[in-house]
Design a protein around this nucleic acid. Structure first.
Length: 259
DNA sequence: ATGGTTGCCGAGCAA
């Protein structure tokens, strides 16, 4: 089972680039972030034509997540539990049934800038809620994959210019600690488990020639429960997608599971 | 230090 995460930065703007990547990469399941679309406006027909079932959790103009799957999706839930006042569309879950069932969470973690401030407070509170949900999922002892745009640079080796991010909500010590607290419940960060070295990124800003200079950061991650980690056979970043026509500022990251 | 870019949608905000 091939499972990918891709922050597409607007589903309408990616109506050509996303299908092109799907045809090439042929993932079984993709979690999308920043669809920037309501559920009604999502162009279902494009992806149904490629054999995908679509579940969205959209919002007008901003945020929004979705799961596309060639395999049957069951038990879909929308929204991160823990705050009924939170109206931002950043979390969706579904069970995907291959040779065995895998619970997949698609997430768009708050950016948090500027920090300090209310947006940073929201980020840390959201991460505390995510930790609670992650612990619940671990307790099921099912294979669980939590994939998405974490807006977290886990370590200095995950940035081409770590000094430029010292004061940024993506790299502040409290952000990194909150990420570690989730991982340390018992998750495996898929890419880092297979590639210990520096120089691997999943995002390059549109501004200031970041892609041309390879001034990137690694902020798109897949966290695997022990039962999922035992099934992992590969993990890659499709960096060349950033050089395509009208690209997102993020590229896909994917795993394969023996499931 | 600033400015640099893109997407949403039709003015700024978010990133």
């Amino acid at each position: 089972m091939k499972i990918a995460t891709f922050n597409i930065n607007g589903i309408k703007a990616r109506a050509e680039a996303l299908p092109a990547w799907l045809r090439m990469a042929e993932p079984d399941v993709v979690v999308l972030q920043e669809i920037k679309s309501t559920d009604e406006a999502f162009p279902h027909e494009i992806f149904e034509g490629l054999g995908y079932q679509i579940e969205t959790h959209g919002q007008k103009g901003f945020n929004g997540v979705a799961i596309l799957s060639k395999l049957p999706l069951e038990d879909v839930t929308r929204g991160l539990p823990g705050d009924p006042e939170d109206e931002q569309a950043r979390w969706i879950e579904a069970a995907v049934v291959g040779t065995r069932a895998v619970r997949i969470c698609g997430l768009y973690l708050p950016n948090g800038n500027p920090a300090p401030g209310p947006k940073y407070d929201y980020k840390l509170a959201w991460m505390a809620r995510m930790r609670t949900r992650a612990a619940e999922l671990l307790a099921t002892e099912d294979p669980v994959v939590m994939a998405g745009d974490y807006n977290i640079i886990p370590q200095d080796i995950d940035a081409a210019r770590p000094e430029a991010w010292r004061e940024d909500a993506l790299a502040l010590p409290d952000s990194r600690a909150a990420f570690r607290r989730i991982v340390n419940l018992g998750f495996t960060e898929a890419f880092r488990a297979r590639e210990p070295g520096p120089g691997h990124y999943s995002f390059w800003d549109y501004q200031a020639g970041a892609w041309a200079r390879n001034n990137g950061i690694r902020i798109d991650h897949l966290l695997l429960s022990p039962q999922a980690a035992d099934l992992m056979t590969d993990c890659q970043i499709d960096r060349e997608v950033r050089a395509g026509e009208k690209p997102s500022d993020h590229v896909p990251v994917w795993i394969t599971l023996d499931a």
